[in-house]
Amino acid sequence: MVPVVKISNLDKFFGHLHVLKNISLEVAERQVVCLIGRSGSGKSTLLRCINFLEEPSHGSIEVDGIIVAGGEKGSKHRQLVHDVRLKTGMVFQEFNLFPHMTVLENVIEGPVIVKGMDKKKAIELGEENLDRVGLLFKKDEYPMRLSGGQKQRVAIARALTMEPRVMLFDEPTSALDPELIGEVLNVMQKLAKAGMTMLVVTHEMGFAREVADRVLVMSEGEIIEDAKPSDLFNNPKDPRTKALIDRYRSGEQ
């Protein structure tokens, strides 16, 4: 099967710092992939390279058949990046909802302004997605009046309304109070069950174990392990993976 996301020989430098080292990765349709690793291991940067919030230094990204080489400039490159962004939905750690727009306006902004979708149709689609995350009743509120968990669910609905082929989650629960994490993870789990292709950078080991099809462990800019969660958590091959999992275990207690 043709992968939805294919990363080939990706390198990323920040100045002299080599943060991603020759990464290659394929994600099949409907697959849920969790990226774990210590902070600074490059997992967020890798995710942000997929929709070019970070420009890769070398290598290429392919999303749903659109191939974009990293480190290039010019209008053709910009067009390709734009096309890739339309295929990817992004959820940020800090939600990044637009504070001057209502919940519904946030959700339909992309389809209407970027895709030129008919406003009526966008509202229909937006309301459907707000319903999926359980927040249709908040559609006329401003983000300021929502809890962190609600904000993140709106952010998920906003990304979904662009009808992406793959969803990218960048530590979606890290900025949340512990009691609000569950509602966001539930929405993500529902989304996974519905067959959405997902890449999730997370520290939530429970989520990785239960929902992911694959877990990737990153360390110092490399993928050091790529396995099914049951294998990875029960018998980690790399000692660094073992250390990471032990650290989480002790933190959970």
Binding site: N51, L53, H82, R85, L86, T88, G89, M90, F92, E94, N96, L97, F98, E109, G110, I113, V114, K115, R158, A159, M162
Partner: peptide, 17 residues
């Protein structure tokens, strides 16, 4: 904040939009 710009870019907005 920079997050606002990133959120706009992520849904495919051009710099002008």
């Amino acid at each position: 904040g920079k997050g606002q710009r990133e959120a706009a870019m992520a849904i495919g907005m051009t710099p002008t939009q």
